[in-house]
Design a protein around this nucleic acid. Structure first.
Lengths: 337, 337
DNA sequence: TTGAAAGCGCTAACAT
DNA sequence: ATGTTAGCGCTTTCAA
């Protein structure tokens, strides 16, 4: 079991040892059905003995395909994105594709560099989430590059994506809150300028409120995407017109908001209702369990990957809106009379 | 903004357009300091105008380095591994390395295929977690391949790793429980045969119990790594000699166990104490917050990556034991008299 | 069914 | 400081 310096065989050595041409060895690995069974067995034997495995870099350069896709997500520490990755990676692996993954930490500079870097690596396609579909330099680059890609979580009429219908989902949650008797609802988000999803959710929430004759959904902006802002929260809760329900634009934010409310001496849901958006598994473990809008993140990843692979194989780009559902937990309750 | 079929330029075209040799263009990108400033500016200009970026596949083939590392982890849905990935990826990116990631779902076959696949891709090194360092076919392959690698979460005297000291960590937790008055403690794990970490934790727990004169730490094996087994649990809790504290070998398992206990009509911690191992962030959000042994997962990933890069650059392999700490939550309380 | 030859895009000797 | 040349490992015509 000595650690030899690994004199990595090439297809040429194998060909010589097997007494055939390099082309035949190549065929033995790529189109075994067209080489003579005896030759095939012999080559496989020699290759195995020598510990030979085709070098994918050589193959990629020659064939023009790396059989690798790139994934660019804000952070894997948000279980929503982690699940999305798992769905996509599994699907990719099943099709013989590998995945390069970059976490941007919501930094547009990292995001843009990641796209460039993955393109330099000649990935066959890209799955990514951008802050805002409508003004993303990254996305413009991508469009003009001809590289196949699919967005996840974003929605757009001009770019392929896999996502829930954020407007409808937010609307459904507002309807749920309204059914509980809430008439003053606020949507809590991170910086709106940095998230087209948050904007869509706000639109959906407002549309529903209007339809149901509720007061306009207020908007409370936090400075970070997943962290709460105790001061902003306190300010928003002052006065007679304070909202009775806080609809947070993601689950992580909801947990942070709940923690802040508790620190403020409020109790959820008896003093105020809170709900989230995402449906991360951990929400169910909280006490009370988090009321939220569940997105099928694994499915979003899987679908995006399927669509991307289809594109890579020449199909036209395609978008999918996956079904969401309201998870009734215990953080949103009937409003007190 | 037409989607041109992208007639990807090569270094040769750029060289011709710029009136220099391909080698000079290559130098302009790789060792800009040795080319004449005017030439450099001119080449950069031409390259930029043509939208040229060096093809990393060509470069990799020629140079023998892909500047890519492989990461193989059981699942990104466990926030512990997600954080580890983030630490490693960030560190890699800072050094100009990209990351290919595979989630094995604890399946040895996937694990082994992933190692092969990443080696086929000519990654420069590998970071991975294996079920059992002492009998891992995967690891044997790796050793004989000469590919640099660093284990994460595993510990070994013969393989480089980055991990906490699992024995000491488990011992510390047992000491903590003992200080709360517990004398009958059980360690709850998934299949022991499939996790050297669980085994080390059991050893550490037993050693500490012995030292402190407690009863031997019982072992309750669940059939899955992170799911609880209500029947096994019920059986273990029968009788006068039932444990007063359940030490779960990971946080996800701890949450599942707590849920089962609650379903059994027991209350944590007043009827029985429970604690976990990992220190996932969500533990702090539970009610009561999870008492656990925190591992610095981001740091483990970062350290592993640093050590791997050092190895890739010719340094000898190195192992690191990172510090753990006991997080006192509310799921473990003083034993009732 | 197999072989010969060219070349994917790039870099590293070696020359100048 | 720049150019010439060869070739990394593989696949893919084109021939046989």
């Amino acid at each position: 079991m000595a650690t030899r310096p690994s004199p990595r065989f090439s297809i040429i050595e194998v060909a010589r040892k097997a007494g055939v041409s390099p082309a035949t060895v190549s065929r033995a690995f790529n189109q075994p059905e067209i080489v003579h069974p005896d030759t095939l067995a012999h080559i496989r034997n020699v290759a195995k003995r020598a510990g030979f495995r085709p070098n994918r870099v050589g193959r990629s350069l020659r064939s023009g395909s790396t059989r690798t896709i790139g994934l660019i997500l804000p952070t894997l520490s948000n279980p929503v994105f982690a699940e999305c990755f798992e769905g996509a990676e599994r699907r990719a692996r099943e099709s013989g594709y590998s995945v390069m993954l970059t976490a941007t930490g919501y930094d547009p500079a990292v995001e843009s560099a990641a796209v460039q870097g993955l393109m330099d690596h000649q990935v066959d396609g890209l799955i990514l989430t951008v802050a805002d579909v409508n003004k993303s330099a990254t996305l413009d680059d991508l469009d003009s590059s001809g590289m196949p890609y699919v967005l996840v979580y974003n929605e757009s009429s001009t770019h392929p994506f896999a996502s829930v219908d954020n407007r409808a989902a937010a609307s459904d949650m507002v309807a749920h809150l309204a059914a509980l008797g809430h008439r003053r609802i606020a949507l809590v988000t991170g910086p709106l300028t940095a998230s087209d999803r948050a904007r869509r959710r706000l639109m959906g929430a407002r549309a529903c409120a209007k339809k149901l004759g509720l007061e306009t959904v207020q908007h409370i902006a936090m400075s970070s995407h997943t962290g709460s802002d105790a001061d902003a929260l306190k300010a928003a809760l002052r006065g007679k017109q304070a909202p009775t329900a806080l609809f947070c634009s993601n689950d992580l934010l909801a947990t942070a908001v709940i923690a802040d409310l508790v620190a403020l001496g409020l109790s959820v849901p008896s003093d105020i209702s809170v709900c989230g958006f995402d449906g991360m598994r951990f929400g169910a473990l909280l006490t009370p369990p988090l009321t939220t809008v569940a997105q099928p993140s694994d499915g979003i990843g899987q679908t995006a990957c399927s669509n991307l692979l289809a594109q890579i194989h020449g199909q036209p780009p395609q978008s999918n809106r996956l079904p969401h559902c309201i998870v009734v937990g215990g953080t949103a309750a009937s409003v007190r009379r």
